[in-house]
Amino acid sequence: MSDASSTPQPRHIPDTLGTRWGRRLRSWETLLIAVLIAVFTINALSSPYFLNAWNLSDATFNFTEKAMIAFAMAMLVIAGEIDLSVAAIIALASTAMGHAATLGFGTPALVAVGLLTGLACGAFNGLLVARFNLPSIVATIGTMSLFRGISFIVLGDKAYTEYPDSFAFFGQGYVWWVISFELVLFAVLALLFWVLLHRTSFGRAVYAVGNNPTAALFSGIRVARVKFMLFLLTGLTSGIAAVCLTARLGSTRPSIAFGWELEIVTMVVLGGVNILGGSGSIGGVVLAAIIMGLVTFGFGLMNVPGIVMSIFIGLLLIAVIGIPRLVSPQSRRVE
């Protein structure tokens, strides 16, 4: 920092000093991997039924649908926004599919209806936040009520259950042996989102917007467009999750996926995404999703009810965010 006194000779600046940056990122994921191994080991030791391919395969259904949305949510949170309406989008998309099914639509058309409903909801959120500059946390609390409210208006206390047999594949089908369709979809989406966030200029723009939207705008990033696209993505993934969940349950009630939004946000934050925006990775979210799924499954095997698992997840969330902040004061950010 003694610029004035040093000689004005061009200096060579190395690209990187070792792997400090990389190390920091990795350390978060290392922590998650350690937790994952611990959870896996404890489960394996405490229940003879845990290390069974079919049981493990069943366990994946605990997280696959939520994780699909969590990938898009992670990008949105990195960009400094949030979408609390995702679970309500599932409800609306599922209702739309149920309605279409009663009209006699076939499986391909039902999937299209589900995805398009998701996209439309995402576009509406995107419009409110990106075009009208509403704070996303409250705007999406509003659309959350609106979307699920429409499901309630349509369905009331009834349910749609008349889905074609072939539709069930998306939630109950297996691609090979114990590998379910949902698990494959989860893996494919994880890869796609990893590429999108970490290997494309769109992903870079997401980080720029999340760290400083003003400076990003001043650097020529079309900030509103980036945010709109991200809301479209959360809408679309919610639509995909709606297809899988509806197919798995074989029925639609307006209360479907109730409370998922907070579980998905938990998954994202546990995955190391800064809730204030600017940093995070898809790899972390994948690990967090698997951890949450295995914890649920393990507790289930031990006949511990799901609600108790929530204590564990809640503590994990606070510990995993809080401990690094207590240890190194520099990682704190003033909001």
């Binding site: 509003g142 659309t143 959350m144 009520s145 609106l146 979307f147 699920r148 409210g149 429409i150 309630f152 208006i153 369905l155 009331g156 307006p254």
Partner: peptide, 8 residues
Amino acid sequence: FWQLAISG
């Protein structure tokens, strides 16, 4: 059942 949508 309209209540939720209206408050939204």
